[in-house]
Deep mutational scan, measured.
Amino acid sequence: IGSLMYASIFGNVSAIIQRLYSGTARYHTQMLRVREFIRFHQIPNPLRQRLEEYFQHAWSYTNGIDMNAVLKGFPECLQADICLHLNRSLLQHCKPFRGATKGCLRALAMKFKTTHAPPGDTLVHAGDLLTALYFISRGSIEILRGDVVVAILGKNDIFGEPLNLYARPGKSNGDVRALTYCDLHKIHRDDLLEVLDMYPEFSDHFWSSLEITFNLRDTNMIPGSPGSTELEGGFSRQRKRKLSFRRRTDKDTEQPGEVSALGPGRAGAGPSSRGRPGGPWGESPSSGPSSPESSEDEGPGRSSSPLRLVPFSSPRPPGEPPGGEPLMEDCEKSSDTCNPLSGAFSGVSNIFSFWGDSRGRQYQELPRCPAPTPSLLNIPLSSPGRRPRGDVESRLDALQRQLNRLETRLSADMATVLQLLQRQMTLVPPAYSAVTTPGPGPTSTSPLLPVSPLPTLTLDSLSQVSQFMACEELPPGAPELPQEGPTRRLSLPGQLGALTSQPLHRHGSDPG
C-alpha cells in the first residue's frame, strides 16, 4: 500500500511539474524568437521594450494561443456562430445594431475584428487614413492633437468618421493612444458598406441611429477645401490634362476667341504652333527640309505637354522668318557652300510665315494684346468667377478644330508651292551661260556676264508674291485673308516669265 501511494503521488507530481515546464519551455522559446528578432533588426531601446511588454501581456492574456488560427480551423457556418458569440456584447448593447435580422448580425459579426491594445500603444496616428470604424468594449483611450489631450473615450464609445457622408476615406486629425488595456472591435469601411448593401432595409436605420462619439476626420483635408492638395495627390493619381488660365478682364471677355491653345513656353509662336517648341509643326519652317525628324516628334510632343491658354504674339512682318533660324542665316552668309535649293526654301518659309499670320487673323479676328503681368498667370479653374468647365471645354474643342483646319490648309498650300517650284525647275534647270562666239564683223562684242542661278530668282519672285499679296490685293481696312490656291498659281508664272525669257546656255562643266 505504501509503495502504491508513493507511486501515485510521485507520478502525479511529476506530471504536474512536467506540464509546468512544458508551458515555461514554450514561453521561453517564443521569447527567444522575439529577442532574436530584436537583435537581428537592431531595434532601439524604447521600441524594444514595448515589443517585450506586449509579448508578455499577450502570452498571459491568451496563454500563447493564436485565436485567429484556431477560429480559421472551423467551417464557415461554425465561424459565424463563434463570431456572433464573441461580439454578442457589442451587437446587443450598441444602439445602431438593434433591430437587425439574424442574418445581418451574422454577416456583421464575420466582418468585425477584435484588437487588444496595451497602455501607451498608439492605435491611430495623425494623418493616417481612416479605413475603419472603432467600437470600444473595454478600457479607455485618449485622443491628442500635438501634445494636447482633446478627448478621453471609454466603454461603448465610437470613434472614426461617418462613412455615409464621404465617398473616400479621410485623414485623422489626431493621435489615438490607449490609456489602459483596451479591447476594441473594428470593422473596415469596405466590409461595412458591403453588408449594408446586402441589407438595404437595415442601412437607413443604421446610419440614422449611429452616433460617433469623436469624429477623427480632418475637415481641412476634404477635397475642394484650401488644404486638400495632399489628399488630392493621394487619391487622384490618374489626373486628366491640367489647364491653367490667364485672368480675363471685362474688356477681354467681350471679345470671342481671344486665346489660343499652345504648349508651355510657346507664347511667341504662331497660331498653328503645336507639339515641339520653336515654330509651326514643332520646328522652324525654314529647317523643315533639312530635319525630317521633326514630323516624327510632333505626335509625342503634342500628347505629353499640358495645355496652356495664352494670348497671341505680336504680328510678324511678311518677309521675316518666324524666328530662331540660325540654319538659314548661316546659309545666307556662306552662300557659296550651301545647297542652291536652300534659297528657294527660304522664300517658301517667308510665304508660310505670311500665310500663317494672315490665317491666324482670319480665324481669330481680334487685335493683338500685350501679355498680362506675371502675377495674373496660372489662375486655377476652381477659383470664384471662372467660367463653367463645359464652356471652357467647348472653347478648347473649337480652337482645336480651327487649328486642324489651319494645319490642313497650310499643308495644301505648301504642296502647291512645291509643285510650282518643281515645275519651274523642270522647265528651266539651273545653269550658267557659256561665252558666246564673236560675230564675223570687226565690231565684236565682249563675252556675256554669267546669269544668276535660278534659286536666287525664285527667292526674289516669291518675296514679290508675298509683298504683292500682303499690300496690293487686300483693300484698305479689310481683314488680311489668305489668297486662294488658283490665284497664287496664276501669279507665280507671271512673275517668273520675264526672268526666264532670256536664252540660257548650259555650261560645259555643268553635270545637269
Rank of each mutant, 00 (worst) to 15 (best):
R308M: 10
R405D: 03
S501G: 11
T436I: 12
P503D: 08
D252N: 08
L396S: 05
L462E: 15
T416Y: 01
P455F: 04
T416P: 04
Q467P: 12
S303L: 06
D357R: 06
P321M: 06
F312Q: 09
G288D: 08
L144N: 07
P315D: 14
I143G: 02
T337I: 11
T219F: 11
L499C: 12
H188I: 04
E254W: 10
P300G: 15
S290R: 12
H188N: 12
L262A: 12
T337Q: 08
P318F: 15
P475L: 08
L457D: 11
R145M: 09
S137H: 06
S466T: 08
G299M: 13
E254H: 15
D297F: 12
I351R: 10
Q495H: 06
K251S: 12
Q495W: 11
E393G: 08
T337S: 10
G160P: 01
E142C: 07
F312H: 04
T436D: 09
A470S: 10
L341M: 10
L210G: 02
D183Y: 09
E393P: 09
L427M: 08
G174K: 04
Q255Y: 12
K186V: 13
T445M: 14
P317I: 08
S225A: 11
L309S: 07
L427K: 11
F159Y: 01
S137T: 13
L309F: 06
S260F: 09
G497N: 05
L231A: 11
M469E: 12
L216S: 01
Q238A: 13
Q422P: 06
S463W: 10
L492V: 09
T408H: 09
Q402T: 05
P479F: 10
E258F: 12
F214W: 08
P453H: 10
E298F: 15
P315R: 06
R145D: 10
T337D: 07
K251C: 11
R168H: 15
I351N: 07
C182H: 01
V148E: 13
V451E: 10
P226D: 10
R138E: 11
A267M: 12
P380T: 04
Y166I: 04
T445Y: 14
G282N: 12
S346V: 10
L427T: 13
C369V: 09
N173Y: 10
W207F: 04
L193M: 11
E296L: 15
P223L: 08
S225C: 08
R248V: 10
P503L: 11
M469W: 15
G265I: 10
V465T: 12
D157R: 03
Y199S: 02
S273K: 04
D397E: 10
S260A: 10
G282R: 05
L196S: 05
I143P: 01
R274T: 04
E211L: 03
E296G: 11
N164D: 08
L153M: 04
E325N: 15
A434W: 10
E296D: 05
R395N: 08
D191W: 01
L427F: 14
Y199A: 03
I379E: 09
G497D: 04
N404G: 08
P453F: 11
V195A: 04
S260N: 15
A371G: 10
Q255F: 12
L163P: 12
G360W: 15
S244V: 12
T131S: 07
I152C: 03
P169C: 10
L165K: 14
N156H: 10
L366A: 11
L133V: 10
L496M: 07
S394C: 04
P430Q: 06
P429T: 08
G160M: 01
I136G: 01
R248M: 13
L129W: 06
D297G: 08
S272K: 04
D357Y: 05
G324Q: 15
M414Y: 04
S137I: 05
F235E: 12
R359L: 10
P292E: 14
T456M: 10
H507K: 14
V435W: 09
P340L: 11
P442T: 07
K155S: 09
P256K: 08
R248L: 10
S358T: 11
M221F: 08
A470G: 12
C369I: 09
L427E: 08
D191G: 02
S225M: 12
R217G: 09
P285R: 11
E298V: 11
I136L: 06
Y199I: 01
R368V: 09
E201C: 04
D204A: 15
A167L: 09
E325P: 04
L504F: 01
P372S: 09
L496W: 10
R361D: 07
L496R: 10
F468E: 08
P453N: 08
P162I: 03
G477W: 15
H507C: 03
G288I: 15
E194I: 04
G477L: 12
T458G: 11
Q402H: 05
D147G: 08
A132K: 10
L341D: 05
E298A: 12
P450L: 08
S433T: 11
G323Q: 12
R389D: 15
L193F: 12
E332F: 07
N350V: 02
G127N: 06
H188T: 12
Y199E: 03
A498S: 12
T426M: 11
A412S: 06
S446M: 12
G288M: 05
Y166K: 13
A434P: 13
A261Q: 09
Q364I: 05
I141N: 01
P440T: 09
D157N: 04
F345A: 12
R409L: 08
G360V: 08
Q419S: 08
C338P: 10
